[in-house]
């Protein structure tokens, strides 16, 4: 079933439909939250809280086609709330085990995520929204509340930084 139909059903109170929406989006939402918060546990909390919020407010979403961007914005806001709180407490390393996620990708895929996590907060956001959440520039602009031109230039600079970080032969270690 398409997201549009599921959104319409969820808006009429069908919790199953909402659950299916969650299943469709949970991986990319989690990836986006992990890129932004850089903590596997904060990412899980941000997504859980955002989905609870989305469930309560989904009736207010006028255009079902905008669900993807809409729920992205809620997750980004939750992440930024967490980052603000974290800024005031002593940084804590993720415990090594157990993991809040299971990696179901190629071996070097996590290295790429680590590289994304070394970017500045603004750049982490645009990369997460663009490539994990698959949003258009116009949608990212809406999510972040900034002009499309700003999104484009952030994307270009973020890509440039990633290429510099990952370029082989520089011997640059990706810091955690």
């Amino acid at each position: 079933m398409e997201d549009n139909e599921l959104v319409a059903l969820a808006q009429s109170g069908d919790a199953r439909a909402f659950t299916m929406l969650v299943r469709h989006h949970e991986r990319s939402l989690y990836a986006a939250a992990y890129a932004i918060t850089r903590s596997q546990w904060d990412a899980a909390d941000a997504v859980q809280d955002a989905l609870a919020d989305a469930y309560v407010h989904i009736k207010g979403l006028r255009d079902p086609a905008r669900f993807g961007a809409w729920v992205s914005r809620i997750v980004v806001n939750e992440c930024n709330d967490l980052l603000r709180k974290r800024a005031r407490v002593v940084p804590m390393e993720d415990p090594p085990e157990p993991q809040a996620f299971v990696w179901d990708g190629p071996e070097d895929g996590l290295d790429l995520m680590r590289a994304v996590q070394t970017l500045s907060p603004d750049h982490r956001e645009v990369i997460a929204l663009r490539y994990f959440r698959d949003l258009k520039v116009a949608e990212i602009a809406e999510v972040l509340g900034c002009p499309p031109g700003t999104v484009k230039s952030r994307l270009n600079r973020a890509i440039g930084s990633l290429e510099a970080t990952l370029r082989p032969g520089t011997g640059q270690e990706v810091p955690r």
Binding site: A15, F18, T19, V22, E26, R27, S28, Y30, A31, A32, Y34, A44, V47, Q48, L51, A52, Y55, P98, Q99, A100, F101, V102, W103, D104, G105, P106, G109, L112, M113, V116, Y131, F132, R133, D134
Partner: peptide, 15 residues
């Protein structure tokens, strides 16, 4: 390819 490879260990409980 990254996003789809992150499988949250605990499924999100909604509602």
């Amino acid at each position: 390819e990254i996003a789809d490879a992150f499988v949250p260990a605990d499924r999100f409980v909604v509602p």
